[in-house]
Amino acid sequence: MPSLKDLRNRIASVKATQKITKAMQMVAAAKLRRAQTAAEAARPYAERMAAVLGNIASGVIVGPETPRLLAGTGSDRVHLLVVCTAERGLCGAFNSSIARLARDHANRLMAEGKTVKIICVGKKGYDILRRQFVQQIIELIDLRSVRQLGFEQGDMIAQKVLARFEAGEFDVATLFYSRFRSVIAQIPTAQQIIPAQIEATGTSSDAVYDYEPDEGEILTTLLPRNLTVQIFRALLENAASEQGARMSAMDSATRNAGEMIKKQTMTYNRSRQAMITKELIEIISGAEAL
């Protein structure tokens, strides 16, 4: 039986923890709003880009002249996984669910006898994946110093991926991130980025397009940019998802702390009452014995 002092201390410590989780929840809520607006603001660009690209690509016949970013290298021996996670923990299953998706993917590929290389964006994913894939991880991109995600970060990662692709280090690249559905639902997603997957647009116009400069040249500049946009978008979605996950994780932590405080207070009051009763009995029986 813990003493009254123990109980008091315990209650005080849970209360302090609750204050922290509550504060974290509110910070996450404020950040979430900003991240969500950013993710939504980026959507039109990505959508237009996809539409424009789909428009051009639907008219392209895959041949030796086609850019390799669209047609692929012709083999799928080496796979690159770009795993985007958060830099911080305490956000529920956010990091681990992305890492799990990537791990399953990597295991499946390795079982098929393919070579797997991993680029980690974000320290948390690296911490999880490093246990199993030390040899496969070729790079860790740290975004901890970045306060506001900008297009530059997407560009920076895309350039790194492109440089490796140009050097022939891999054939297929897949991007792992968490899509933001709502505060309580974040969906870990795997998206193939190289070769580019183009959705055929149903509204492809019959009108003859003029291209300035020519079609091929536009495609060669458009494809790397598309890669950047996809990565940038993944980063933004991830940022929103992270805050959403943290918010709900901290919300339930706050609630659990509240329950614990209630229970502990009850025990505290009971044992206090029990002690008073015990003392009273002692006094009364002492008086009776006289």
Binding site: V52, S205, I218
Partner: peptide, 19 residues
């Protein structure tokens, strides 16, 4: 500011794609 020189787009311009 197109790569091949500035161009003005008015209503009813023919479909074009330019860098």
């Amino acid at each position: 500011p197109a790569t091949e020189g500035d161009m003005t787009v008015l209503a009813g311009h023919s479909p074009v794609m330019t860098a």
